[in-house]
Design a protein around this nucleic acid. Structure first.
Lengths: 197, 197, 197, 197
DNA sequence: AATGAATGAGCATTCATTCAT
DNA sequence: AATGAATGAATGCTCATTCAT
């Protein structure tokens, strides 16, 4: 598996073009939004013709879900064992990634298109949101095992509390606030601290 | 009293049409997004001609910012003095309102359009986000004055922690989770509790 | 005749508004052309409402023919008896008037609209072209009577030769050439000089 | 020889469509004028879709300047060496061409649009007016060389006198007058005849 | 008389998609 | 495989004109 299809007849598809198209599509998706971007722009940016795109993906939605699916947006910072430092590192990486790829516009596009093209939001979740949540959850689990957190704590809820301020700040026009990650981590750890003896 | 305008010349503007147009526009903005909705759809839904819309608002962006500005989306539940109950009530009202007006799609549209029509996000902030944050902040201030919260707590950051899980849950596909508001309130109050003697 | 209609009932039409509207209409006709100008622009420039225009003239074509009809664009310089000087004066006045009222654009509009609104060109002829030709013809007649011109000369054709270079120069991008009038007059007078004994 | 392009990729452009579009565009430009004609009319007349037009020319102005540029409106009658006959032939051909392509309406459109789309008039000059003037000037030069015309005559001015009556006649409603060309030629030749010994 | 509201028709342009080479 | 041609369906916006006050 993972292997190429048994060589089909005719000229093979140019390997690099797929990547170039997907990259251009994702870029434009974030910068212009789903409806405002055009396949002509993607084609121009990727240096191919519009037909070449349609040859590979049937529709605009197909292309963009593929682009989102191909995106690799979560890089796990190496865990150190220090709960506070590890959580903060993950959150800072999250914020940095969002900024780097114009993530809030991308997120907005997926939300805005949810009624019309739900695959976009579904893919965004699967590829970027849930993996990052899993990282955070894993750190919290280890902290719980070490007794730094109440054993009955709802860790998924805690993950939402950790990530949430980022979104809330952005919506309030306070995006990019320094120290937001530490603040969130400290508050969660304080709130979930095991009750006294 | 009432200082009635001395009847302006010409045919008066049909009373309900403004409201019908704005309502239709907001509805479509949430359900289709900025670029996918058309003025023709708004006109049809409101039962007026396209020209009537252009008579009142110069451009599509004008209309939609007006629709957003006219939306009344923050209803303050009466404060009871019970910090936990008051915060939870505000957060629950928030979640209910978002659900009622397809708020996440609307938010998504504003985020997606930020680069192209920043007024949308600006208005959303001014009209809905910041007023609700002010309500929460006010409750927290009173709690601090009563000694329920550390005097040096960063209340704005606390507000983001209160609201944030809503967004984070939605992004994770956990939107509508029961008890999210209580969880967030409890965690914040526990995290900000004054340190004992 | 020429007297006002026997006082009709109701509020009389504002006198100045007619003039203001016609002036604005003519101005815009020259500067934007028939189809590119709008009644809204005329209304704004004249300080009235669009409806006020329609109250007086049924259609756009009606208004513009009226505006053209009202225009007074031929001022006869006083004849001196010197054929050469008189002809030159009329031609120079012609050129000056055309420049002052953006006449070539106006002429172009009337020509362009000939198939669709032939009244425009008809009025332009009647009000401006023919009166000026009559002036020139009169001077030539007197010259002929004085024996400066062959008795069998076709004076109407001569008038066209006098005026023509103005148009031909403009079309060639040589509009405003100094001395064009003298040149034309000299050439015509030389060409029509009575043949010697 | 011929240096044939190495067959470009993709479906080749339908041969006749360019010509059909340009012809239809020029026809409509003359009959309706720039602003009154629509691309939909051009498309219908040429039997193509509107998009096909936009594929080839970016804007309406682009299309119409191209149509004007493609028009071949000056056919040089072969020179015979007889000054009077050659000049008359050129002028008659001029009048015939103008009539054939509804030239006065076209000229009117270019004049009317001068403020808004100056390329139209510029192209008309370059493609039709100036070439014809050059023909006339060439004949006059030869006449001068043969001593039929005063050596100090301003030939460009003479060209304007030759062509001018056509415009002036049209403006006066005397367009199509038989013999106008001969009259103009005779008058010019008489006016420019070398002075006797 | 005068005005502002309201509208239907129309316009240039864009775009995702399909065709023909 | 890859490309350029071709198209039908929108879209935001303008305008002359008619309606209601």
């Amino acid at each position: 598996m993972g292997a190429r299809q048994t060589k089909s007849a005719g000229r093979p598809r140019s390997a690099g073009k797929d990547a170039a198209i997907l990259r251009a599509a994702l870029e434009l998706l974030a910068s212009h939004g789903y409806t405002r971007m055009s396949l002509a722009q993607v084609a121009a940016a990727a240096g191919v013709s519009k037909s070449t795109i349609h040859l590979r993906w049937k529709t605009k939605a197909d292309l963009l879900t593929a682009a989102l699916a191909a995106a690799r947006m979560v890089d796990a910072p190496p865990p150190s064992g220090d709960t506070r430092a590890d959580l903060t590192a993950i959150l800072d990486d999250f914020a940095a990634t969002v900024e780097r790829v114009r993530g809030m516009a991308l997120i907005g596009t997926c939300l805005a298109e949810e009624a019309h093209t739900p695959e976009l939001l579904a893919l965004l979740r699967e590829r970027t949101v849930l993996p990052r949540r899993a990282l955070l959850c894993h750190v919290l689990e280890q902290a719980r095992d070490r007794g730094e957190i109440r054993p009955d704590a709802d860790l998924d809820a805690a993950v939402s509390v950790l990530l949430g301020p980022f979104y809330a700040d952005y919506m309030a026009g306070r995006g990019g606030r320094a120290g937001w990650a530490e603040d969130a981590v400290d508050l969660v750890l304080a709130g979930l601290r095991p009750t006294g003896p």
